[in-house]
Design a protein around this nucleic acid. Structure first.
Lengths: 246, 246
DNA sequence: TGTACATCAGTGAACGCGCGTTCACTGATGTAC
DNA sequence: TGTACATCAGTGAACGCGCGTTCACTGATGTAC
């Protein structure tokens, strides 16, 4: 067919130039749209404007592409969590809460990454680079938990720092995957996921002995305290979020 | 082929007798094995020992089968949560914690149902029966949260009961989906998911003003208090559970 | 009790489809001299 | 600066596969009389 060159591929030559990157981007878009389960290698090639055989020059198979995405996701995740933590400034509790929000924000804004990282079935130990990236991300939360642990008021029983890190992780993941993901499966809520998580973390911190309705000495304005009865979320229709239709 | 009758289908006649049920069971097994994403209609037929066309007599399509499973899952889930709640006996806090454990137990023991209900992408509002079933299940948690709310010591700010219900749900779901599912994607933990969730809930309850290291007056033995530093989980290798290989 | 017949729940062959993967190939790029 | 050549990144045709779905069919069951 002599029209090959004129057809769409006109702008680029025979070589794509940056196919690996283009495939990652295409896959990311497809995952955001249909979930990691529904994404196919062939589709990614098509979206990148390339034949179905071309991706094999850059990825052994579909799984390798998927785990590359997960890895990149963990790297960006780490960066965002680290920025939110900001080494505990201005104070540990404030920074800790900010990490929780950053977690949610990531899940909301990067549903494709989040999906590939936590819901695609890619085993974290599939390859060393992926595993290292995921460890670095978790270490931000762990470091934060350790600082928090060192600060808990004496007299209050508290779990090991590692457990606290896992608590914050599961709270954030729970809220994110039930209510904050970008796809259609998420449940409807009578409040924002951020409000929900923030209140949850605040109650948790209070349970650890931190005063949360008044900031630790030396810090003025912070996130609002646990919402009292009657604030957003109450007075709304009593339907179940598991069953809320629209 | 004249051997048709003698081959495998010998025990049953031309009619299966209970194909609908057999398909549901087959699908459940397949989902447990490969996840809802990897389950196919044809596979379910094969496992039920029936031609690929037979399922169409009982289900419009794959999605209808899947949402039937989700619905049945919510029904069983409700039953287990209700049994755990036991109308708040012997006391609200104890029963509340038992609900959390029942949640985890369900996720662990019925990964296929859990998957279909929460991770398969089946929209809860796909059909009225499914939605009703999921609502009934959530209502157990909501009822428990309401009783808890009515009991919170005065003076402690607390969120609406609905929000408390969502908190317990997301904690349980977070732990379940990260650490307690039956499939290969779950992360390794330096402690049991039950311990993790129990401590999390206890700290949360303490944050609501409940005394958790000593049971409310009138109740003797209960779950252990929040584990102090040094209990299970500490002193273990400092690796990240996101990256823990084996 | 027996028979005719309607209904029902399966069969198996066929179809179109898209995927993953391989293969010999070819156009483009870069480099040695 | 020019040319020969190796290397690289794509092509497109082909393959086998399993899935979803439809179709006319047929064996089994139940029921009216």
């Amino acid at each position: 067919m002599s029209w090959r060159k004129e057809q769409g591929r006109a702008e680029r030559g025979y070589h794509h130039g940056n196919l690996k990157e283009a495939l990652l981007q295409a896959a990311l878009g497809l995952i955001a749209e249909k979930g990691a389960a529904g994404f196919t290698f062939a589709d990614a090639a098509r979206m990148a404007g390339v034949s179905a055989a071309a991706p094999y020059r850059h990825f052994r198979d579909r799984d390798e592409l998927l785990s590359s995405i997960a890895q990149r996701g963990f790297e960006q995740f780490e960066a965002r969590l680290a920025a939110a933590w900001d080494d505990g400034r201005p104070d540990t509790v404030t920074a800790f809460e900010r990490v929780g929000k950053a977690y949610l924000a990531f899940a909301r804004e990067e549903p494709a990454f989040y999906n590939a990282m936590f819901e695609s079935g890619v085993p974290v130990d599939a390859n060393a680079a992926l595993q290292a990236a995921s460890e670095r991300a978790f270490n931000i939360i762990r470091a934060a938990a350790e600082r928090l642990a060192a600060l808990t008021p004496p007299g209050t029983p508290r779990p090991p720092a590692m457990m606290m890190a896992l608590h914050i992780w599961s709270m954030a993941h729970g809220v994110a995957s039930l209510f904050s993901r970008g796809d259609a499966a998420r449940r409807k809520l009578p409040m924002s996921p951020d409000e929900l998580l923030e209140a949850e973390v605040l109650i948790y911190l209070r349970g650890l002995g931190f005063p949360t309705d008044r900031r630790p000495a030396g810090h003025s304005a912070g996130p609002p305290p646990v919402p009292p009865e009657g604030s957003s979320g109450s007075g709304l229709p009593p339907g179940s979020p598991w069953g809320k239709p629209k």
